[in-house]
Measured scan of single mutants.
Amino acid sequence: MGFKLLSKLLVYLTASIMAIASPLAFSVDSSGEYPTVSEIPVGEVRLYQIADGVWSHIATQSFDGAVYPSNGLIVRDGDELLLIDTAWGAKNTAALLAEIEKQIGLPVTRAVSTHFHDDRVGGVDVLRAAGVATYASPSTRRLAEVEGNEIPTHSLEGLSSSGDAVRFGPVELFYPGAAHSTDNLIVYVPSASVLYGGCAIYELSRTSAGNVADADLAEWPTSIERIQQHYPEAQFVIPGHGLPGGLDLLKHTTNVVKAHTNRSVVE
C-alpha cells in the first residue's frame, strides 16, 4: 500500500471513529477524501466538511520552486461564519470567499490569524475590503508590521502568557507558548472536538522541520505538551499544512522538532 493511500485511509478511519463516538456532533463529509496538494491548482481553494458547521479550507501556493498546501478553518456561528487564517495570499483568499459563498452561503463576518507569517495573514486586506472584521493577538499584529505583512485590524486580548485561553464565538483560542513562531495560536472547536494546530503542528508525513527561522526550538516541545494537557479530548487535529489526523500529530511534531534540534547540535 502506497504512503499517500495509507495517509488518506488514516484520515478516513479517524473521521469514521469520530462519527461513531459522537453521532450528534459529527456529520463528516462523505463526498470524498481530504484534498491534497496535487489536486488543488494554485489560485483555487477546496472546502472539506469535518463536522456539522465545521470545515477546513485548503489552498496551495508556490514557494521556492515548489507547491505547498495550506489549511485553515471555518466555523459556523449562528447565521454567520468565523474564518481562521487566510488562504495564503490575496488571490487565494478572494477564491476562498467565493467558494464559501458557493458552498455554504453564509457571510464571513470575523477572521482570526493564528500567527504573523504570510500563509496566515496574506489576504487580510481582501477580507477587510469584503467587510470582514480581522483579528490577531497584539504580538501577531506587531510582528506582521515588522515583517511588512498585512496586519489584522483588531487585537485579541488575554493571550499574552503561555497557557492563556479565551473564548471567541464558537471557538476557544489558546496560546501554548512559542513553537513554530513566538505568537502562534491554537484554535479548538469544543462542539466538535476539532483542534486546529496551525503551523505549530505537523502532518504525519512530514519528517523535516522546514521553516524554523522564527521558531523557538527549545520551547516548542513544552508548548505541545500544554496543548495535549489542555485538549486531551480532541479527536480531529488539523495541521497548518497537509493531512489531518488525531492527537498523534502532536507527538510526531515533537519528535521531528527534537530530531532537528539534535542534528543542529551535532553539526
Score class of each variant (00 low, 15 high):
residue 19 A to D: 15
residue 92 N to E: 07
residue 112 V to N: 03
residue 147 E to C: 14
residue 73 L to M: 14
residue 217 L to Y: 15
residue 62 S to Q: 14
residue 41 P to F: 11
residue 264 S to R: 13
residue 19 A to Q: 11
residue 263 R to W: 06
residue 173 L to H: 04
residue 220 W to P: 00
residue 41 P to K: 12
residue 104 I to S: 00
residue 199 C to Q: 00
residue 15 A to V: 07
residue 60 T to E: 08
residue 219 E to S: 14
residue 200 A to K: 02
residue 265 V to W: 09
residue 243 L to D: 08
residue 119 D to R: 00
residue 33 E to A: 09
residue 190 P to S: 05
residue 64 D to F: 12
residue 94 A to L: 14
residue 35 P to D: 11
residue 38 S to W: 09
residue 201 I to M: 14
residue 48 Y to S: 10
residue 155 S to I: 15
residue 14 T to C: 07
residue 159 L to G: 01
residue 168 F to T: 02
residue 60 T to D: 04
residue 26 F to Q: 09
residue 200 A to I: 12
residue 10 L to G: 08
residue 4 K to W: 06
residue 101 E to A: 13
residue 46 R to M: 14
residue 239 P to Y: 01
residue 157 E to Y: 09
residue 230 H to I: 15
residue 192 A to D: 07
residue 181 S to R: 01
residue 245 G to S: 06
residue 174 F to V: 04
residue 28 V to S: 06
residue 238 I to A: 01
residue 148 G to D: 14
residue 254 T to P: 04
residue 7 S to H: 13
residue 239 P to F: 01
residue 110 R to A: 14
residue 143 L to Q: 11
residue 101 E to R: 13
residue 157 E to D: 15
residue 73 L to D: 02
residue 215 A to K: 15
residue 189 V to F: 06
residue 227 I to D: 02
residue 204 L to M: 14
residue 99 E to G: 13
residue 220 W to R: 02
residue 139 S to V: 10
residue 140 T to S: 12
residue 135 Y to W: 07
residue 74 I to Y: 03
residue 79 D to A: 14
residue 75 V to S: 03
residue 55 W to V: 02
residue 129 A to N: 05
residue 174 F to G: 01
residue 120 R to N: 05
residue 188 Y to G: 01
residue 221 P to W: 10
residue 72 G to Y: 03
residue 134 T to S: 13
residue 109 T to M: 12
residue 238 I to H: 02
residue 236 F to W: 06
residue 197 G to M: 01
residue 87 A to K: 00
residue 267 E to V: 11
residue 166 V to M: 09
residue 178 A to C: 04
residue 96 L to M: 14
residue 93 T to G: 00
residue 71 N to W: 00
residue 7 S to F: 15
residue 110 R to V: 14
residue 5 L to A: 11
residue 218 A to K: 15
residue 158 G to M: 07
residue 79 D to H: 15
residue 41 P to L: 08
residue 187 V to S: 04
residue 153 T to V: 13
residue 163 G to T: 07
residue 123 G to K: 03
residue 260 H to I: 15
residue 59 A to H: 09
residue 121 V to S: 04
residue 142 R to N: 12
residue 81 L to T: 07
residue 17 I to S: 05
residue 32 G to L: 15
residue 74 I to E: 03
residue 16 S to G: 07
residue 56 S to I: 05
residue 174 F to L: 12
residue 216 D to V: 09
residue 28 V to W: 12
residue 243 L to G: 09
residue 140 T to V: 03
residue 170 P to M: 11
residue 41 P to A: 10
residue 239 P to A: 05
residue 54 V to K: 04
residue 211 N to I: 14
residue 131 G to L: 05
residue 105 G to V: 13
residue 130 A to P: 05
residue 209 A to T: 10
residue 103 Q to K: 12
residue 249 L to W: 01
residue 9 L to D: 07
residue 144 A to F: 03
residue 7 S to M: 15
residue 14 T to W: 04
residue 25 A to S: 08
residue 131 G to W: 04
residue 170 P to V: 08
residue 212 V to C: 05
residue 48 Y to D: 11
residue 257 V to D: 00
residue 136 A to L: 03
residue 53 G to V: 14
residue 6 L to S: 12
residue 85 D to K: 00
residue 4 K to R: 05
residue 165 A to S: 13
residue 242 G to V: 03
residue 4 K to D: 06
residue 17 I to V: 05
residue 78 G to V: 11
residue 190 P to M: 05
residue 91 K to T: 10
residue 238 I to R: 01
residue 50 I to F: 05
residue 82 L to S: 05
residue 253 T to E: 00
residue 220 W to A: 03
residue 163 G to M: 06
residue 262 N to Q: 05
residue 131 G to K: 13
residue 163 G to S: 08
residue 75 V to F: 02
residue 177 G to L: 01
residue 251 K to W: 08
residue 1 M to F: 02
residue 220 W to S: 01
residue 227 I to K: 03
residue 223 S to K: 03
residue 229 Q to W: 13
residue 54 V to D: 02
residue 76 R to W: 09
residue 171 V to F: 01
residue 130 A to C: 11
residue 31 S to Q: 09
residue 177 G to P: 00
residue 196 Y to K: 00
residue 152 P to I: 11
residue 82 L to N: 06
residue 231 Y to E: 01
residue 22 S to M: 08
residue 150 E to P: 15
residue 101 E to K: 07
residue 201 I to T: 08
residue 147 E to I: 15
residue 98 A to K: 07
residue 133 A to T: 14
residue 218 A to G: 12
residue 174 F to R: 02
residue 100 I to L: 12
residue 143 L to Y: 13
residue 197 G to A: 09
residue 267 E to S: 11
residue 261 T to V: 11
residue 6 L to T: 07
residue 204 L to C: 04
residue 33 E to Y: 07
residue 240 G to M: 03
residue 3 F to I: 15
residue 42 V to M: 14
residue 254 T to R: 10
residue 216 D to N: 08
residue 191 S to N: 08
residue 235 Q to R: 08
residue 193 S to Y: 08
residue 150 E to M: 13
residue 42 V to I: 12
residue 136 A to Q: 03
residue 225 E to T: 06
residue 44 E to T: 12
residue 12 Y to C: 07
residue 189 V to P: 00
residue 154 H to C: 05
residue 38 S to H: 13
residue 68 Y to K: 11
residue 144 A to C: 11
residue 104 I to D: 00
residue 119 D to I: 01
residue 113 S to G: 08
residue 33 E to W: 07
residue 7 S to L: 06
residue 97 L to F: 05
residue 260 H to D: 09
residue 170 P to T: 09
residue 127 L to T: 01
residue 160 S to Y: 12
residue 233 E to K: 14
residue 12 Y to K: 15
residue 191 S to I: 06
residue 264 S to P: 11
residue 3 F to P: 04
residue 252 H to V: 04
residue 237 V to D: 01
residue 81 L to C: 05
residue 213 A to F: 15
residue 167 R to N: 06
residue 45 V to C: 03
residue 199 C to W: 02
residue 185 L to H: 00
residue 234 A to Y: 04
residue 230 H to G: 13
residue 166 V to Y: 08
residue 30 S to E: 08
residue 266 V to A: 10
residue 245 G to Q: 03
residue 248 D to S: 09
residue 191 S to M: 07
residue 179 A to R: 02
residue 100 I to Y: 03
residue 105 G to E: 14
residue 219 E to C: 04
residue 244 P to E: 03
residue 49 Q to G: 12
residue 181 S to M: 01
residue 121 V to F: 02
residue 230 H to R: 11
residue 3 F to L: 07
residue 154 H to S: 13
residue 74 I to K: 01
residue 214 D to W: 10
residue 228 Q to V: 13
residue 38 S to N: 05
residue 205 S to L: 11
residue 211 N to Y: 07
residue 5 L to M: 11
residue 189 V to C: 01
residue 172 E to D: 09
residue 213 A to L: 14
residue 15 A to M: 14
residue 255 N to T: 09
residue 107 P to Q: 08
residue 205 S to P: 14
residue 64 D to V: 12
residue 73 L to Y: 00
residue 239 P to K: 00
residue 226 R to M: 08
residue 187 V to M: 04
residue 111 A to Q: 10
residue 121 V to T: 06
residue 29 D to R: 08
residue 240 G to D: 04
residue 248 D to M: 14
residue 257 V to A: 07
residue 262 N to P: 06
residue 203 E to T: 15
residue 160 S to F: 14
residue 164 D to S: 13
residue 105 G to T: 06
residue 217 L to S: 11
residue 20 I to C: 08
residue 244 P to K: 04
residue 241 H to P: 02
residue 74 I to H: 00
residue 74 I to A: 13
residue 92 N to T: 15
residue 22 S to C: 10
residue 62 S to W: 08
residue 200 A to G: 04
residue 122 G to R: 12
residue 180 H to L: 02
residue 166 V to Q: 13
residue 90 A to P: 09
residue 254 T to K: 08
residue 124 V to E: 04
residue 148 G to F: 14
residue 93 T to R: 00
residue 179 A to C: 03
residue 253 T to H: 01
residue 227 I to H: 01
residue 173 L to Q: 01
residue 216 D to A: 11
residue 147 E to Q: 08
residue 244 P to N: 04
residue 87 A to T: 02
residue 170 P to C: 04
residue 30 S to W: 14
residue 246 G to V: 04
